[in-house]
Design a protein around this nucleic acid. Structure first.
Lengths: 229, 229
DNA sequence: CCAAAAGTGTTTAAAATACACCCATGG
DNA sequence: CCATGGGTGTATTTTAAACACTTTTGG
């Protein structure tokens, strides 16, 4: 048969599960829908993929258009294709999760009227479409990825304390972590370097600041090292 | 704006990376393309998703149509959407891996002229489209999944010896495994039960046959057990 | 009786865990 | 001077790794 595929086609979208961390807990960025269906409901940033556009590019573009966020770490984790996930017609969505430094993306008045708001990952409002399920999967993926790749650092500011890093892991994994064992492991990996004479001050003892060393990670990876936390 | 999305749309397909194991090594099922583009090249089983069809259903259907295989374990692992992955037009493919008992699916004369053939996973021919890359990703996923979920059993016959199981893990992970430590771990998990008085005979000492116990696995999972090999 | 694969335990090393007190600062 | 979170070491348990010989069968 010649290539004449003239059947109706599903629409193709991308959705982004945007994670952030503020020292308190894991956060998720949602936008309020301005249109039907699900007008007024909260939803994931996302939208249609252009026919000549890479999937990841579409995710980046939609994220930028709807929330102002750019230069973000994106990872595709699953396609969602349930027949009735969109009440209008068949829409298949490729889902990405994004890891952002929350402080760089405090809620701004969004360009196009719709507002973007950070929610606690475990206190989400009622969501549009199957976005609840997408988020659930994203969390599962994040939890397993964060233990075998040093991606958690993308949720922290470039300079961070070990306490912040620990808090991040506790939030993502949903359980407490022993402070001494955690520090032992992190420092033993030598993926993180102490910044000389740089401290974070509060109303208590100043905390040593560290930064993640991506070059060091590349080195280690080449010599068979496997990140694990 | 009303919902009038009248732009050209990408076509949507599914592709299946079908794994098998024959005691020798990991195998992959490919079909020879009968049509352009890539006529005569080997390719993954797969095809178009109907507009009212679940993704997984499409994967199952295509697999059945092209290879005769049914009742198989399928797991979606990634969507591939590179702009020029299909020379004809934009095609986004949702990729699944399938785990089959190879002996149940020995090469038959396929229903529709095209033949399906098992290849050694590390001696693949030149492939159509970006199927090489899809397989690469499938292997990576399989390798990490097989260590944290008891899915490897789907590649073995219902009754198997521990040596077969070990060989499977060695093939998938690509490294040797210590026989005594492996057996110790497997038996300690109690996911596998010895079949009374059932042995596999060869020209040497008969080997105890075991079967995987899925109910036991469900039990254990509920009580917080985490499979790991 | 020989070849071939099945089966079996112990010792050692490494890694994970549990655990409690002193430190430096801001207010 | 006190409240707050930062920072540190050791002993114990658990887990992983290394390692070689005996058994059973078919031919």
């Amino acid at each position: 048969m010649p290539f004449t595929y003239e059947y109706p086609r599903a629409a193709l979208t991308v959705d982004c599960v945007v994670f952030g961390f503020d020292g308190e807990g894991l956060k998720l960025l949602l936008i309020e829908r301005g249109l039907e269906p699900f007008k007024g409901r909260w939803a994931l940033p996302g939208g249609f993929v252009r026919v000549d556009e890479e999937l990841e590019h579409a995710a980046r573009r939609e994220l930028h258009e709807e929330t102002g966020i750019s230069e973000v770490v994106l990872e595709q984790f699953q396609a969602f294709g349930g027949i009735n996930r969109d009440p209008r017609e068949r829409v298949v969505s490729v889902a990405y999760f994004a890891l952002t430094r929350l402080d760089d993306h405090r809620p701004q008045a969004s360009t196009d009227a719709r507002q973007a708001v950070w929610f606690n990952a475990n206190e989400l409002p009622k969501l549009a479409f199957d976005h609840q399920a997408i988020i659930q999967q994203a969390l599962t993926h994040l939890r397993s990825r964060v233990r075998v790749e040093p991606i958690g650092f993308h949720l922290l500011p470039p300079k961070f304390t070990l306490t912040q890093l620990q808090g991040l892991y506790e939030s993502v994994l949903g359980r407490e972590v022993d402070i001494r064992n955690f520090r032992k492991r992190v420092l033993a990996m030598e993926l993180v370097v102490a910044l000389k004479k740089e401290f974070q001050r509060g109303r208590q003892r100043p905390a040593q600041l560290y930064r993640f060393d991506p070059k060091r990670y590349e080195q280690l990876k080449k010599s068979g090292f496997q990140f694990e936390l």
